[in-house]
Amino acid sequence: MDLNWNLLLQLLLNGVIVGMLYGVVAMCFVLIYKSTQVVNFAQGEFVVLGAWVCWSMIAWMELHFIPAFLFALVFMTLYGVIVQVVVLRPLVGEPIISVIMATIGLSIFMQALMNWVFGNNAESFPDIFGGWKIEIGGLQVEAGYLLSFVLSIVVMLAFFWFFKYSRWGLAMRATAFNQQVAASLGISTRQVFAMAWAISALVSAIAGIVLGLVNGVSTGLAFIGIKVFPAVIVGGLDSIVGAILGGVIIGVLENGAEFVDGQILKVGNMYKVAPFYVLILILMIKPYGLFGTKDIERV
């Protein structure tokens, strides 16, 4: 069988780059889950909203890319806080199904609202790179992809610094570890909860804008919110390192599945469902993922 190995390399490279973005969004998801015990089914909508806000600033207000980008970040930070205070705060202590349904309701609401305000069509960002491309080992890499790679690394380093050294980051880790103890040591868990949502929304917006630069903005970008689930299950639900690694694994796996599908099996659509088969498999053999903490129950 004559396989196109160059295509495989190209796909795997794409997989790593897209996977890094999955990892970044998965990290936001894990951040919220870890510090507030909320499963955010609206993560994908956060990504899209960030991209739309940045796009509308450029297209409607005729701002340059950098101020529009900064505006989108500020907007999304505030938005994250508002969502936490209005929707999630009243549900603290409610059973898990209520919390899941609340974020699902939020995602439906946001999706319809965004379709209304920004329209159903995909819009592209003005080309800020001028079609500039780079060659790495004979493979073409678009500038947008390169930017996404660099930004992903920057975000991950920033996360690392924030949680390791900053006062707020330590407070968040303490809250994630044990809410009651953290509260009795004088940490305001309310503020920590709001901040977790703010950071998550902010970082999602970065991922959304980068994705928008490469593929254009549309509601379809919210698919990344669904891809997050295989990524976090592979990595472990409460591990930030696991989320990044899980994202990369899912990105590579998707593109690998596309290659096997396109070159050998020819069944079509493997790209979309392969991550979910892996998800079920992981849940069967290692339900806490690669880095997740095992839940031990004692009576």
Binding site: S98, A102, I104, I108, W116
Partner: peptide, 24 residues
């Protein structure tokens, strides 16, 4: 006028959230 279709979709999301908060 053009929002009619979207209000319909938004209502489902809003109904879920409001019920969870006000009448769980």
């Amino acid at each position: 006028q053009q929002g009619v279709a979207y209000v319909k979709e938004m209502a489902i999301g809003l109904a879920i959230i409001l019920f969870l908060i006000l009448e769980p």
